[in-house]
Design a protein around this nucleic acid. Structure first.
Length: 424
RNA sequence: GGAGACUUGUCCGAGUGGUUUAAGGAGCAAGCCUGGAAAGUUUGUAUACGGGUAACUGUAUCGAGGGUUCGAAUCCCUCAGUCUCCGCCA
């Protein structure tokens, strides 16, 4: 959520930035927010005047009762009736104005960093880095969904029977490989200084609001009405919300946290070959890394996180590229996003396996996540997160790229984690 | 799921309608004291939104939200959470 003082002081920058997101009427929105905020201030100070008077009267009445002047006290009481009525009216107008401001701010996306290019969609993302060579597959090479069947390591039909489409079973070496990947990713994250958490897989509404999934995008999350909980779409939600409503000490920054969780996404309306096999699931596994940092260093930290993610891909011997997303393709809360994609050799396409973003103060403002340097005023921290990594597409790419006529070769780095060298 | 007790500031803790503008203590910070430190002592020590160049000042916040009252940490209602006991349970 953007901050009103920021919108006031950097109005032109904010509007220009929002326009990078194809935001049709950024100017109008920002102008009307500022006007509503002026109104809010006016109402607030009028209300404060009334309340100050009412408090004063209450104190005077107290004194009078004490000194036995009950009659005078009763006379004073009459004055309060009018004040109360005015206060009530001002209060409800104020609440109304505050709600309108809040609703508008909730639906307003983050202002992209000044370095972010214009662009209306995925085609205009910028390739920031490419690494590795695309493997030449032997004749008879298969896409991962056929490999999964051939080696009996993933069962999509069984998932449909037990739950529904998008909830596969991993089986035998498939399951062990998943577990190996999770352990490998967690091991690398904790070595890099991230504290590991095992988080709840359901969150309450306040947490969904804190990281920006609510109130706008409840459609992407599974919802449990009996208890008013949401299944997490990413570990970012519980892990970042650990720090909601806190004031950190500057010397404790950066805070680095990571966690493995299954992730649940409804992804309504998806279909076709883009969602075939492991390409898009309703439940998938992911290791997430999160940092809470001082605003001065957040862009250095973003590069650090990018390097962390790409080093994993190198170790897994997967060809990858890093995209710098353009304004039109960036997520709602992000100021700057890198997407990491691996090449899936049999499908012959790039698959997104990580999205690593700097949210600047957009999340921390919603979360009320601040830090304090000595006696200075609390300031909003910057938050960042990244997938490190999402499993299914890594698995798809591993299976397809490393397939041989003899079986699927496990990258060396994973062998100690899964305990076998080939799936055959 | 049932019954009861409870939730106060950074922490502990007092407070059942009006000098509570939240006692007292601990911690922390600064000053004094000291050769230096400890002890002692004094002062300060929350957050949000306003007004003011500033000193300062107004309002709100005692788990959350509502209500009663001229006035609520205190009384009433709803909800959440913690603890104890009972029931059920991996």
């Amino acid at each position: 959520m953007l901050q009103l003082p920021y919108l006031r002081e950097h109005k032109e920058d904010a509007i220009a930035g929002l326009k990078k997101r194809n935001n049709l009427n950024a100017t109008e929105t920002v102008e009307s927010l500022i006007a509503m905020d002026d109104e809010r201030k006016r109402l607030q100070s009028e209300l404060d005047t009334r309340l100050a008077r009412a408090n004063q009267i209450a104190r005077e009445i107290g004194e009078m009762f004490k000194s036995g002047k009950a009659a005078e006290a009763n006379a004073l009481k009459e004055e309060t009736a009018a004040i109360k009525e005015e206060s009530k009216e001002l209060e409800s107008k104020l609440a109304e104005t505050e709600n309108s401001i809040r609703d508008m701010l909730y639906t307003l996306p983050n202002v992209p960093c000044y370095m972010i290019p214009f662009g209306t969609g995925p085609d205009e993302n910028v390739v920031a880095e490419e690494h590795g060579t695309i493997p030449k597959l032997h004749s008879g090479a298969m896409p991962h969904w056929d490999l999964a069947k051939k080696y009996d390591i993933i069962d999509f039909e069984l998932g449909v029977k037990v739950t529904g489409a998008g909830f596969p079973f991993y089986k035998g070496k498939g399951a062990r490989l998943q577990r190996a990947l999770i352990n490998f990713f967690l091991e690398r994250a904790t070595t890099a200084g991230y504290t590991e958490y095992q988080a709840p897989l359901m969150v309450n509404e306040a947490s969904g609001i804190g990281t920006g999934q609510l109130p706008d995008k409840e459609g992407q999350m599974y919802y449990m009405p009996a208890d008013d909980y949401y299944m997490i779409p990413t570990a970012e939600v519980p892990i970042t919300n650990i720090f909601r409503d806190t004031i950190q000490k500057a010397e404790d920054l950066p805070i680095k946290a990571c966690g493995y969780t299954p992730c649940f996404r409804r992804e309504a309306g998806s279909y076709g070959k883009d969602v075939r096999g492991l390409n898009r699931l309703h439940q998938f596994d992911k290791v997430e890394i999160v940092q809470i940092v001082h605003p001065d260093v957040s862009y250095d930290v973003l590069e650090e996180m990018r390097n962390h993610v790409t080093s994993l891909l190198k170790e897994l011997e997967l060809p990858y590229r890093v995209l710098q997303l353009c304004g039109g393709d960036m997520g709602f809360a992000s100021a700057y996003t890198y997407d990491m994609e691996v090449f899936s050799a049999a499908q012959e396409k790039w698959l997104e396996v990580s999205s690593t973003s700097n949210f600047e103060t957009f999340q921390s403002n919603r979360l009320k996540l601040r830090f304090k340097d000595g006696d200075s005023k609390p300031r909003l921290a910057h938050t960042l997160n990244g997938s490190a990594l999402a499993l299914p597409r890594i698995l798809a790419s591993l299976l397809e790229n490393h397939q041989t006529p003899e079986g699927i070769r496990i990258p060396k780095v994973l062998v100690p984690y899964c305990g076998f060298e080939m799936i055959d």
